[in-house]
Every structure is written in structure tokens, then in C-alpha cells.
Amino acid sequence: MSTPPRRRAPTVISVDSVNPDLVPGGAGESVVADLCGRWLTARGFEVHRLERRPRRPSLVAIARGTGGGRSLMLNGHLDTVGLAGYDGDPLAPRVHDGRMYGRGAFDMKGGTAAMMVAAARATAHGFLRGDVILACVADEEHGSTGTEEVLKSFTADAAIVTEPSQLQVTLAHKGFAWFEVEIEGRAAHGSRPELGVDAIAKAGHFLVPLEDLGRRLARGPAHPLLGTGTVHASVIRGGEEPSTYPARCRITLERRTVPGESADGVERELTALLDQLASTVPDFRYRLTRGLDREPFQADPGAPIVCTLTRHAERALGHPPVVRAEPFWTDCALLDRAGIPCLLFGVDGAGAHAADEYADLGSLDRLTDILTGTIAEFCS
């Protein structure tokens, strides 16, 4: 009688966890959260499952210290972007030339796995005084509702977000603010220009100074790590048919912000621009609506968690780590706003949101070692 083939144990990469807020019908985080929860429970962690949004769970796993030490939270997200367009099978992880390929290997299941293994190693003998807290969160790729939910019930003396950073110490990142500008026209038959107001043509009056605003931002004061803020039009919608003057044109825009800038300031900036057009362009009417916004982030380079991790990174790498910033947004800003000093540090690799994604396995080993040493020292 033949022996049935041995089934491979699922890995975090082989489990579909596409964010359904990005891709309708996406699997969400339930199954990968189950996998991580079993792994952590088997290693003695106290596991809490938070699921304010059905089928969108985050896990908080705690190794309690003996008392009197500093607590440390390690944060990593479980969701990924979509699978369509990936070159090959995105859920069949493969190793080639020292790289692990698959959707989420780089962004950021590699970092989440590293922080889990590091925490298990550092707490295996129960000698630490401070609590070690793992936040395996949902929805970072869209609205970060997972980290927001975690921070309603849990805190720590410091945190590390293990987003990919090429083993470079990341101490700042940009924020963003989304706005929709609706330019109002007047619908009329295309043969009756005296009755119609072309909302699309009026929108052109806005797009020109918006581009100029981008140029002025680029010439303005720069953050030492991030440079300047930016603005661009992302989506434009307007019109119904060729023979009708469009009654409205909607423009969605994104303003990337640096420390010192805020969504409130951006709203004032855009309102001033639009009010100027309303006072000078005939029949120019608008409505400005603010959408999602997230603050920029800047860490204190002298914070104890930054100094501790930097010291262990230098020991593992054989040289001082590069200090850098990221142009994209991360959950660091939410942790910082909650009063938790933090930084970002993660694996090397490439292909975030791309057709070919991988994490460098050597860097994954070094990341795990650096996190293990940092946990052991910070929480001792």
C-alpha cells in the first residue's frame, strides 16, 4: 500500500491574508491569525484576539515579566496587498539564491515572523523583568484599524515596528492627507453653451495652481531625513456623455506631509487656493471634503529603545547601521501618538506591492538576532 504524500505545514506566506478593504472578497487575516496564535500559545504566550471588525482579527501575545522591568511591544501586520499580477504562485513560498519569494515575504510577514521567533527566544527562560508584547495586527495596508484597536487596550514603554527597512534604523516617515475637491458646473445640452457651465473645464483652473503648489513645496524648507512635502492629483471623475455639459468634476488628491505639517494645515492651504479661484474665475464653485489622514512620524534619536537596538544592530552588522527615513506611512505614527517611543527596523529584500516579492534570508536571520538581543537587554 502506498504512503500518502506528506502535507506541508502552512506558513505565514502560504496563507492568503489579502486585505479585503483593498481587494473586495480578499481573505482577510483570520486564518493567518489562527496560525500565529497556535504557534505563540504553544510557546507559553498569553494570547488575546481582538476582533471589533468581524473576520479582521489582530493578536496581542504577552510574555509576562517577573516585574519591575520595562515593557516592549513589537508590531507587525498580517495583511497583504492583492495577489493578482504576481509573477508565479504568490502563495507558494520558494527559496532561491538565499531569498524567500512570495506575497508578503518582504511586506511584511518576514518581519512579523522574525519578531515572533525573537520574542520566543528572549523569553524562553523566563528571566526578563519586563513584559514582551507582540502585536500581530490587521489592516495596516489600508486603514490601520488593527493597531488602533490594539492601542485602545494595550500599551508599552517602547515599541519596534518590524516593517522592511534593509536592516537600517528608520527614525521618521511621512504622513498623508486625502481630500476630494468637487467642482460644480451646470448641466445643459451641448448645443446650448449659454445654459451650461463646464465643470471639467473649471477643474482645469484648479489643477494648474495645484501643480504650482507642488513646485513651491519642493522649493520650501526640507526635513533633514525626509525632504519636503508633496501634493498630486490622484483621481479625476466627471461628465456623463459627449453631448452634455458636465455638472460636476471630482478630483481626489493626496498631500504627503513631513514633521511640522498637519492635515489641518493642508486643509487651510487648499481652502486658500480654492477661495482665490472662486474670487477670480467666473462661475467657479467648489466643495472641499477631507478624507483619511495620518500624521508624519519622527523618533527621538536618543530614546532608550533607539539606542538599545542601534547598539545590537552595530554588533550584528559589524558597522554602525544606516539611519534613514521612509517616504511611506507606517503604524509608528499611531504608536508615537499613543505616547510609546518607537522606531522601525526590518528585513532586506524587495518587491513590496510588486509582481515579484522576496525577503533576503540572511537579513532575516540577522534581524531575528538583533531583535532577540534588544528584547533581552531592554526588558531585563
Results as ranks from 00 to 15, higher is better:
33 A>E: 02
173 H>R: 01
322 V>I: 13
205 H>T: 07
91 L>C: 09
111 G>Y: 04
195 L>T: 11
60 V>Y: 12
104 G>D: 10
104 G>T: 09
121 R>H: 13
223 H>C: 04
179 F>M: 01
171 L>E: 06
168 Q>L: 08
100 M>I: 14
364 L>K: 01
243 S>L: 11
84 A>W: 06
356 D>N: 13
255 R>H: 13
277 L>A: 06
33 A>T: 03
75 N>Y: 03
253 L>P: 02
244 T>R: 15
294 R>S: 14
90 P>W: 09
12 V>M: 15
340 I>N: 09
67 G>E: 04
104 G>E: 08
357 E>M: 08
158 A>V: 04
121 R>A: 14
377 E>K: 00
364 L>R: 07
246 P>Y: 07
8 R>E: 14
255 R>Y: 12
123 T>W: 03
218 A>M: 05
215 R>C: 02
89 D>V: 06
7 R>I: 09
69 G>V: 07
225 L>V: 11
77 H>L: 05
250 R>V: 14
340 I>W: 03
241 E>V: 08
41 T>G: 13
126 G>P: 05
272 A>H: 12
104 G>P: 04
12 V>D: 09
100 M>K: 08
345 F>I: 07
77 H>I: 07
182 E>G: 05
170 T>N: 14
106 F>G: 02
192 R>S: 14
77 H>R: 06
327 P>N: 13
33 A>G: 10
242 P>M: 00
34 D>L: 00
69 G>M: 02
155 T>K: 12
181 V>K: 02
168 Q>V: 04
226 L>T: 05
115 M>R: 07
267 E>H: 12
371 L>T: 01
205 H>D: 08
159 A>Y: 08
189 H>E: 06
371 L>D: 08
345 F>G: 02
232 H>E: 12
361 L>I: 11
116 M>K: 02
131 D>L: 03
149 E>G: 00
325 A>H: 00
222 A>K: 14
228 T>C: 13
336 D>A: 15
28 G>M: 03
324 R>E: 10
50 L>H: 01
221 P>G: 07
159 A>T: 02
255 R>I: 05
299 A>G: 06
323 V>K: 09
210 L>W: 10
335 L>G: 07
34 D>C: 05
21 D>H: 13
82 G>R: 01
373 G>F: 08
276 Q>D: 15
186 R>G: 06
42 A>N: 11
142 H>F: 15
249 C>I: 01
270 L>W: 07
326 E>G: 08
238 G>M: 00
158 A>P: 09
73 M>T: 02
212 D>S: 14
64 R>L: 01
358 Y>G: 07
133 I>L: 14
32 V>I: 15
140 E>N: 06
182 E>I: 14
121 R>G: 00
223 H>W: 11
115 M>A: 09
155 T>G: 15
71 S>P: 07
293 D>S: 15
294 R>D: 04
142 H>T: 14
253 L>S: 00
201 A>E: 13
129 R>K: 15
267 E>V: 01
278 A>H: 00
76 G>D: 05
57 P>I: 08
255 R>P: 04
20 P>V: 00
53 R>S: 12
341 P>M: 09
232 H>R: 13
42 A>G: 14
102 G>R: 05
174 K>S: 08
63 A>P: 03
